[in-house]
Design a binder for these strands. Structure first.
Lengths: 243, 243
DNA sequence: CAACAATTGAGAGCAGCGCTCTTGACAGCC
DNA sequence: GGCTGTCAAGAGCGCTGCTCTCAATTGTTG
């Protein structure tokens, strides 16, 4: 919707720079469409060039190679997912921790079902021969998990985390990992809650992936909305947000 | 390990049939190696032909197309995973329901970490343009989940499922789905346990996928074994197998 | 306004891919 | 021994990513 070209760090002065940014934005847009239809592994620079009305070699003026376009699309998808999640979470009051968690989960699922190929690029099997450059992708890729742990942290500070969560013992080496994360993000939640939060995190994407990737049989579950809502309720309980 | 050619319904009489079956077995073996190294989307019949010491068109005598080879490799991977899981589960006494569940989880994780590309073929984003033929793949693809629900069912019949599991209410449409599954498999477990079992199932693959696909940061978690064991403990509790 | 220089698009070309078709050789079977 | 089915090989089509060269266009600057 909005113009990614405007995200450049400085305003684009010369017409050349503006035209160039616009062309790159067009390439990303066309790439996004191809990705959504044909999947990441079938993304073709030549096809994008054709849709752009230009010969194949011309796109290499704007994008170094296929992997760079893939990276642009990865960042694009991450930020769209983040926006969808943020909008859903912020629609609820800050102190509705349980509601916010469920809104996050529903937003992830809704976006994933609407954009299966792009979801697959983010959370499916890695594209062969492609390694996402950490420098460009880690920041946008961590926004959603930060939203989840932030919500858990706020709930804990508000004294709204059920104590029943503290079932399993967190062993020492794992405790050190969790301590590092807590220090890095300035969190207050104890180890047990963080460990369970990690499980909730991966479980959420496990359920969504099963549905998006068609791992359930064709007609094993007709009531997929109800199934997901049930899972969300149980996961909220694991996180300590249950009633 | 064993020879897939020997799985034919009747003994192979003529030398021609034997030679043909051997060639197909070789193609599958080479395909498995390419798959493990380069991933599903990069699987190339030409490369397999080169390794077979034969011109590319020759392999089409034995395999209709790339998708058919992919299907063969899919079935191959499913059955290897099933064997690994069965071996791990059956090493424990039948009545050690909690131990059997955890053994299943560990076997899945171990196999997935050893065979990331093949795991990705089974549980990652679908290969673009390829649809697994249900007739050939559903049976081998459902063995592991049947093992899990079978274990849950046995535990329930033995009265070893914690009653604390029955937290969330299972709505009506979902209840009908679960009833159909229970009837189809001849199970006794009630809806709440089955619904939670589904979550445990998808959560297990969610955690494993995060680890295999590198969704955790590069060094966010050093204690991955401990993290997985913690998750397994919590999941056993959700399934009702907890202490 | 004109000349310069940066930028761009087009085209050819290389090596790889899936897949099809034809051709000639070989082996098993009657 | 001749027939028939099976096989490997090769050529070829259209697709892919990517590189290189060349000419044209375009923005900027003297």
């Amino acid at each position: 919707m909005n113009d990614p070209a405007a995200d450049a760090e400085t305003t684009l002065r010369t017409p050349r720079e503006r035209a160039r940014a616009q062309t790159i934005a067009d390439i990303v847009r066309l790439g996004r469409e191809h990705l959504a239809i044909h999947g990441a592994a079938a993304l073709s620079l030549r096809a994008v060039a054709r849709d752009l009305g230009v010969v194949s070699s011309a796109v290499y003026r704007y994008v170094a190679n296929r992997d760079e376009l893939l990276t642009l699309l990865l960042v694009d998808a991450y930020s769209e997912l983040r926006d969808a999640v943020d909008a859903a979470v912020n629609a609820l009051p800050e102190r509705d921790f349980d509601g916010r968690f469920k809104a996050l989960g529903r937003a992830v699922r809704t976006w994933a079902l609407r954009e299966p190929a792009r979801y697959g690029l983010l959370f499916g099997s890695p594209v062969p021969g492609y390694r996402a450059p950490a420098g460009q992708t880690t920041t946008p890729g961590t926004r959603v998990i930060y939203s989840l742990v932030g919500n858990l942290d706020s709930a804990y500070r508000a004294g709204k985390i059920t104590t029943a969560v503290r079932t399993a013992v967190v062993p020492s080496v794992l405790a050190a990992d969790l301590e590092a994360i807590r220090a890095g993000l300035g969190l207050a939640v104890p180890n047990e809650v963080m460990a369970n939060g990690t499980l909730v995190w991966t479980s959420l994407f496990g359920t969504v992936s099963f549905e998006v990737f068609g791992q359930y049989g064709a007609d094993t579950f007709r009531a997929r909305d109800e199934l997901f809502e049930h899972h969300l309720t149980v996961l909220a309980g694991i996180a300590g947000l249950g009633a």
